[in-house]
């Protein structure tokens, strides 16, 4: 196990991402930040808060659970826990930024795109990622990247956030024989 990011670095990176969003979006009125459950959701909240601190503008947030849109359900041997989906304002003609902790195969992002389109037709959808670890299996490219961390397939990247895990950090774990 190795630590790839500590709390200070995570805070700095999130601040940079908030600035990047503002740089690319002079108008924040149409923006919505939607976090993919589970750890994308608190990250979206934090970025929205940072934008408020920087620019004094509220950017609404939401959360999205992608379980019902996964492409591997009949291949895995358990029932994933379904978390809340909270998209309370219409996303039609809005600019949605999807937020997730780790980008890996791209399958979660694909599922999130499909799920999102069932809620409406945004004008544009972008993807913000805290850690991009590579190994894409689908043509998915993030618009905002916190940190690129090259990994091997035998490794697992775990993002911890205060809201859920009571601390902020990113660690990398070698998979053992039992997958852990």
């Amino acid at each position: 196990m190795a630590k790839l990011m500590d709390e200070r670095e995570m805070v700095r990176i999130l601040l940079r991402l908030a600035h990047e969003i503002l740089e690319k979006n002079k108008q924040t009125e149409d923006l919505i930040l939607i976090g993919i459950q589970r750890r994308g959701a608190p990250l979206a909240e934090r970025i929205s808060k940072l934008i408020k601190e920087i620019k004094g503008k509220e950017v609404p947030t939401g959360s999205l659970d992608i379980t019902f849109y996964r492409d591997d359900l009949t291949r895995i041997g358990y029932h994933p826990v379904v978390r809340d989906t909270n998209i309370l304002i219409p996303i039609d003609d809005k600019k949605v930024i999807l937020v997730d902790d780790v980008l890996y195969t791209g399958r979660t992002a694909r599922a999130a795109l499909e799920a999102l389109l069932d809620f409406g037709r945004p004008r544009k959808i972008e993807l913000l990622i805290l850690v991009d670890r590579g190994h894409r299996e689908l043509p998915i490219f993030p618009n905002y990247v916190g940190k690129n961390i090259p990994t091997s397939l035998e490794e697992m990247v775990e993002v911890k956030v205060k809201e859920i895990d009571s601390r902020d950090e990113v660690i990398i774990i070698k998979k053992g024989k039992n997958g852990l």
Binding site: F68, Y69, V82, R83, D84, E114, A115, D118, F119
Partner: peptide, 19 residues
């Protein structure tokens, strides 16, 4: 508990998921 997570789908505009 599982049923609870399906509640939201009935109130959406597109009341269908591809699961």
């Amino acid at each position: 508990d599982t049923a609870k997570s399906f509640e939201g789908i009935l109130n959406r505009r597109i009341k269908k998921v591809p699961i």
